[in-house]
Design a protein around this nucleic acid. Structure first.
Length: 338
DNA sequence: AAAGGTGCCAACCGCAACTTA
DNA sequence: GTAAGTTGCGGTTGGCACCTT
């Protein structure tokens, strides 16, 4: 036996809302508020609609200051960054974008942003495949030059097995850390706290990744404890799948290649769905969001004429962008402080 | 011009969390 | 403590508009 329906479906109109229905609902809510009961609201105003439908219509369409379409690059960046860190938590992502609804963002992601990024990804993958191939060919030539009769040539073996790798450079490290910082900033703004901000915390658990980027988490205070834990799980997974687990460096005529065989949490990919993982890698391999979108498109880039932040990291950009979003914006409603 | 395909978006559905009695 | 009612969320779908053949 299922639960009772929230309304009498036989007497409820479905489908698109008429202007009259919109006007009725809007006028009533603006005059009286929702009354704290969406289920009873349609009967009060004589609408043959389900309460859930009224709520949805109000939140997604009739509510003041709703914006539709025309997502900016900075909004794209925020959506991508949050999607990587917390996944498809559209309501949380929407909370960072005033005037946007979770439904709008979800639709935008599914219809445009995802494809846009996949398009970028294809190009990157092609470029990477090409560079990987030429690298392999070069290695093969080199290995043939140094072939020793009677010895197994290991270089030719591993070149066949090696995945496309991103050379680890200080620049990549910086970008990686800067993106981590930006995600961290967002998560902190969402109510979390990192224990390295509060070193005296006794509930800290610390994990270290191969490059000593630490992500200790203190969940002793959080506006949304579960959200924060989830985010941290995903974030720690994301950090572990970064190409930083693989290194490739070249000194003079010697090529060093290694993949850190890390067990436990460091080789986790769970917690990110395939697209999230790919997107995360794409961004890192693309030199961060700047590489993905180009600095011209970033907040404060040349298009806005504020050249002082042209070289800003995503973390900087986020901190610049966020305050203007916050003003006049409602915080998440169902946050609770323990 | 018509048919079929595709993209987009508003709205629906079902489930889980939360609140209340 | 628990059952019923309500809210909020994310996934999915239906239908319209536009594009391609």
């Amino acid at each position: 036996m299922g639960r009772a329906p929230c309304c009498d479906k036989a007497n409820v109109k479905k489908g698109p809302w008429s202007p009259e229905e919109d006007a009725k609902l809007k006028a009533y809510i603006e005059a009286n508020g929702t009354g704290g009961n969406w289920i009873a609201l349609p009967q009060k105003i004589g609408l043959k609609r389900c309460g859930k439908s009224c709520r949805l219509r109000w939140l997604n369409y009739l509510r003041p200051n709703i914006r539709h379409g025309g997502f900016s690059e900075e909004e794209d960046n925020i959506i991508c960054s949050l999607y990587i860190s917390i996944g498809s938590r559209w309501s949380i992502i929407a909370a960072q974008l005033p005037g946007r609804t979770d439904n709008d963002i979800k639709n935008y992601w599914n219809t445009k942003l995802k494809k846009k990024l996949l398009g970028k990804q294809t190009k990157v993958q092609q470029a990477r495949s090409a560079s990987c191939l030429s690298f392999k060919q070069e290695m093969k030539r080199e290995s043939e030059n140094y072939r020793v009769p009677g010895m197994v040539n290991q270089a030719s073996d591993w070149t066949l097995l090696s995945p496309p790798v991103m050379p680890l450079t200080s620049t990549n490290q910086d970008l990686y850390l800067r993106d981590q910082d930006s995600i961290r900033n967002i998560l902190v703004k969402l109510g979390g706290r990192f224990s390295d901000d509060h070193p005296q915390s006794s509930t800290t658990s610390t994990t270290t990744n191969p490059m000593n980027f630490r992500y200790p988490f203190d969940v002793s205070f959080s506006q949304d404890h579960q959200l924060y834990e989830d985010s941290m799980t995903i974030l720690s997974s994301a950090s572990s799948i970064s190409p930083l687990n693989s290194t490739c460096s070249q000194t003079n005529s010697t090529t060093h290649f290694s993949i850190n065989q890390v067990g436990g949490p460091n080789d986790m990919i769970q917690g990110l769905d395939a697209f999230q993982a790919e997107l995360s890698e794409l961004i890192y391999s693309n030199n961060g969001f700047e590489g993905l979108y180009g600095t011209d498109n970033m907040v404060g880039g040349s298009s806005t004429g504020t050249s002082s932040v042209e070289s800003s990291s995503w973390g900087d950009i986020n901190s610049l962008a966020y305050p203007q979003f916050v003003s006049g914006f409602e915080p998440c409603q169902h946050q609770s402080i323990p």
